[in-house]
Design a protein around this nucleic acid. Structure first.
Length: 915
RNA sequence: GGGCGCUUAGCUCAGGUGGUCAGAGCAGCUCGCUUACAACGAGCAGGUCGGGGGUUCGAGUCCCUCAGCGCCCACCA
């Protein structure tokens, strides 16, 4: 039976639940107790019977499981949890799953360091392999299956620690829906989405210049680049003209790439070189004829105004090479060393083959750096180096996790067509509601700056493989141009183990047989499908229809160009829609030097310690005070505020609840000391959003009734003016908090609620505690107002401070505050202007009395002989309405009110001796 | 080179549409064990809101400009 089934007239006599108020409320232990209870009751389980319109779905970031969580995680995940809790109280079924990104390079690197191993794909699988207890000095080469096993072992261990922290943080995620990005389901989703792109031609495999990290031996995407300033040098080199004219001088920082030179290029408007366009020059040392060409990217004021185009020194080279349709003469191999260059043969024609070969023999096999040193000597000796190299500092592209500058090598990679989508993607970005709005600019500038399609293949081991094989020709060569795709019903497949349809296992690698695609997908190629993975795309269509497109993507601004961008791409290509309506971009936590906290700087605060020292609610208060998109400097001192607030919530609730005990004792059920008051019981029950209080009912089973929409309420009458004033101000606060949360300004919402709460405690409680406690006239009004206000405040604070509010709520309710209805301003009656001002006016006078007592160094209970208030008529009239309460709170014998034109002023005469 | 954000008390930060907006907490100082709260409460002191100019009856709040810090994008021969 639910609340709505129950006859209304029974409601007032239904017993109120709750455990009663403890002697000494405390924050300690609340996290453990309530997380266990929420788990047992399934408080945050997603109700998948609800329709899409009643669902609020969150595309939670799956943290990378390659180490430990830091304060930044605590910060941003708390902000998302506030939204989730708010929406849940707004009667939404909140779809709030979480995943672990255990896929990819960071995990591999961590496994290598942790166990002291490295993956050698040629090594045989050892089923009995156990890593050494201590990582050996020399990394142990192990097979790919063994390596992947270790990856899984380590990530599973980390995932337990991560979940434990997030539970302690009070994240209201549905832990029953946890996923990992290497799970079979995620692999199926990722491979399926890839296959659909490939069959529609939106993903393609091509031999192309590829950003390459030599140390990781893998391709890198544009999104993973970062610039670093490193020392270099300009070398001025002389290129002879084929027509015998005066030599042309160019400047380069990469002289070792002279053998890979395919053209010189200058700006089309550059008069110095215009006559040379279309003519031919010879490369120094190698005598290879290359054309002089014009291209607008060439800048006349850079170097000598004419540049050497090599395959490939940088991304500009790639652009020139592509747009000018130049030939390729690549010399840098995947190991970062100069590989064979067949001077004299087709494509490597030269004026002097023997000289070119001799020169190149000095370079071949050397690393890029060593070759540079050697060729400078050669160029110097041949007289082609003009002057001395000129040292400079310049920005060079690195893989963000790498240690050496990237090379650009030619390789076969899978690409997703993003370049042709640019305009569409900008439009999608404009449709998305960004919080804060200016983050849209980050996205747009990234999309505008795309210079190639998205490379999704990585030459790594721990990741989701491409569900693709290639035929092996009769000559034993792999034909990469004719992929054999796995059918969707076979997914997930590992082409290094599984066999394509129509082939036998023993045909692997043999002429006429097949070979598996050796690569794995980039981690973003899978993470970009987080809505599809979490929402059960094609795996659970009923669920997917109820949650997708999602309502919210929360994430950091550092991964707009990766996670956010690629998710938009995948959704556009697969579904033709935005993946979510809102993007909430959180800021970073910075250390006092305004640097992003990172382990390498040794400035990381361990989240568990932070929670231990301050309590979860305190940390959450700090995190949810911040504005979205704004970086915050970490300052543990700030945790005190939230801790104090949480304690105050417990104390204030204890006080108001215990004041309710004596009300209408005659009708109070014996043994149920915290039963609600009679007169307004029916409305209070709705206020608190609880089901009519059948004791013993579990939270989960009463959830449906808690989410019933509230009925309009009768006006709350009769109330003392001061009580009505307090409730009116509370109503205004509810409105402000609701508006703020609706626009993702949780910090503002919290600030408004908190501000009201302190006024409530400092002024209102002090003013009415006597009246409420004493009984008699006005007592019921005060107690009713106290109960309504306490119920409302606990619900307003619940998303921010979930443990203290749940604890306090439990003293008088059987249900969870987190399943209670978010308060509606209308519940509290319609405020009028006079009522709004009353509490403030009386509170101001009370403040003056306190000041007088402090100045006189008397306690707050010290009696006031004579209290006089001067002020304008309307204000005096307000003070008069609260006069009795004021006198009691001030411990004043007499109150004189005097009408004057001036502003409010208060005269306090204390008694000489304590009464 | 293009763009964005920030610059408010010693510290960390609030200050939607310009007019009690000069605020909060921390730190500091002074009091107070008052029956919700001493791991607490009350109170005090602290800033010409980065500089300059402008719009306006009136500007942390709008415009211009300069400076510093941070970030994004591009370039990087």
């Amino acid at each position: 039976m639910t609340a709505t089934d129950q006859p209304k007239d029974l409601a007032p006599t239904a017993p109120r639940g709750g455990t009663g108020v403890p002697e000494r409320p405390a924050l300690e232990g609340l996290e453990e107790r309530w997380s266990a209870r929420w788990e047992a009751d399934g408080t945050y389980r997603f109700d998948r019977s609800r329709e899409r319109a009643d669902v609020f779905s969150i595309d939670t970031p799956p943290p990378t499981v390659s180490g430990s969580l830091h304060v930044g995680h605590v910060f941003s995940y708390t902000q998302t949890d506030v939204v989730a809790r708010y929406q849940r109280m707004r009667a939404k079924a909140v779809f709030y799953p979480i995943g672990w990104d255990d896929n990819g390079l960071p995990t591999e690197r961590r496994v290598q360091n942790y166990f002291g191993v490295r993956c050698d794909p040629s090594a045989p699988y050892d089923p009995a392999f156990e890593p050494p207890a201590e990582p050996p000095a020399e990394a142990l080469a192990i097979s790919r299956p063994n390596f992947v096993e270790l990856c899984r072992r380590l990530t599973e261990r980390d995932e337990v620690a991560f979940e434990s922290l997030f539970r302690r943080l009070g994240l209201s995620v549905d832990w029953s829906r946890t996923y990992t990005t290497v799970s079979a389901a995620a692999q199926r989703t990722s491979q399926r989405a890839f296959l659909r792109l490939a069959t529609r031609g939106k993903a393609y495999r091509r031999e192309a210049p590829t950003l390459w990290d030599v140390d990781f031996a893998s391709a890198i995407a544009q999104a993973e680049l970062e610039d670093r300033e490193i020392p270099g040098a300009y070398h001025r080199l002389r290129f002879a003209r084929a027509d015998g004219g005066p030599a042309i001088e160019i400047e380069t920082t990469r002289p070792e790439l002279v053998p890979a030179c395919v053209a010189l290029v200058a700006n089309p408007d550059d008069d110095r070189y215009r006559p040379l366009f279309g003519t031919t020059v010879l490369t120094p040392l190698f005598g290879v004829p290359v054309p002089v060409r014009a291209h607008p990217l060439a800048e006349p004021d850079k170097g000598s105004g004419i540049a050497m185009v090599c395959t490939f020194g940088d991304l500009t080279d790639v652009t020139w090479w592509r747009e000018l349709a130049l030939p390729a003469r690549t010399i840098v191999g995947r190991d970062g060393r100069l590989e064979r260059a067949p001077f004299g043969e087709t494509g490597w024609e030269t004026a002097d083959a023997s000289r070119a070969r001799a020169a190149y023999a000095e370079l071949e096999g050397r690393t890029v750096r060593a070759a540079r040193r050697r060729i400078v000597e050669l160029l110097s000796a041949s007289g082609d180096l003009v002057g001395e190299p000129r040292p400079i500092t310049h920005a060079v592209k690195f893989y963000e996790k790498g240690d050496r500058p990237l090379e650009i090598v030619s390789s076969q990679q899978w690409y997703v067509r993003t370049l042709e989508l640019r305009e569409r993607l900008v439009e999608r970005g404009a449709e998305l509601a960004w919080h804060p709005a200016f983050m849209q600019g980050r996205y747009e500038s990234w999309v505008d700056g795309l210079n190639g399609d998205w490379n999704i293949s990585r030459q790594r081991f721990f990741g989701i493989p491409f569900p693709v094989w290639y035929p092996v020709g009769d000559d034993g060569s792999i034909d990469g141009s004719r992929p054999i795709f796995a059918p969707e019903h076979r997914l997930p497949v590992d082409p290094s183990v599984d066999v394509p349809d129509g082939f036998a296992p023993d045909q692997r690698g043999l002429p006429g047989g097949f070979a598996g695609d050796p690569d794995v997908m980039d981690t973003w190629a899978t993470s970009s499908l987080s809505p599809q993975i979490a929402g059960g795309w094609e795996e659970d269509p009923d669920l997917f229809a109820r949650v997708f497109p999602m309502d919210l993507r929360p994430q950091g601004h550092d991964i707009i160009r990766t996670w956010l961008f690629t998710t938009v791409v995948r959704s556009e290509l697969e579904h033709g829609t935005l993946p979510w309506r809102n993007a909430a971009i959180s800021g970073w936590i910075l250390d006092p030097d305004r640097k992003k906290m990172s382990k390498s700087k040794g400035n990381v605060v361990v989240p568990n310690d932070l929670l231990e020292r301050n309590g979860t609610d305190a940390v959450r208060y700090w995190a949810s005070s911040a504005r979205l998109g704004v970086d915050t400097i970490f300052d543990e001192q700030q945790m005190k505020i939230g801790r104090r607030l949480a304690i105050k919530i417990l104390q204030a609730t204890k006080f108001t609840i215990s004041r309710l005990d004596g009300r209408d004792a005659a009708t109070n059920d014996a043994g149920r000391p915290h039963d609600a008051g009679r007169p307004h019981d029916a409305r209070l029950r709705r206020d608190s959003g609880e089901a009519s209080g059948t004791t013993g009912r579990s939270i989960a089973s009463s959830r449906a009734s808690a989410l019933e929409p509230l009925e309009p309420l009768e006006p709350l009458e009769p109330l003392e003016p001061l009580d009505a004033s307090m409730l009116a101000r509370l109503g205004a606060t509810v409105q402000e908090a609701t508006d703020a949360l609706d626009s993702y300004e949780h910090g503002r919402a919290l600030e408004r609620v908190e501000h009201f709460f302190w006024t409530f405690c400092d002024d209102y409680l002090e003013l009415v505690k006597g009246r409420a406690y004493r009984g008699g006239p006005g007592s019921d009004s005060a107690r009713t107002a106290l109960e309504v206000a306490t119920s409302t405040l606990l619900r307003l604070f619940a998303p921010f401070v979930p443990f203290a509010t749940e604890e306090a709520w439990s003293w008088w309710h059987d249900t969870s505050v987190h399943l209670a209805a978010w308060p509606e301003p209308g519940e509290l009656g319609v405020p009028d202007a006079a009522q709004l001002g009353l509490l403030g006016a009386v509170g101001q006078v009370l403040g003056e009395v306190r000041r007088a007592k402090t100045v006189a160094k008397r306690s707050m209970r010290w009696p006031v002989q004579r209290l006089t208030v001067h002020g304008p008529g309307p204000t005096i009239d307000l003070v008069a309405l609260g006069g009795d309460d004021l006198c009691e709170a001030a411990n004043a014998a007499t109150l004189d009110l005097v009408h004057v034109e001036d502003d409010l002023s208060v005269t306090v005469v204390l008694t000489d001796e304590s009464a």
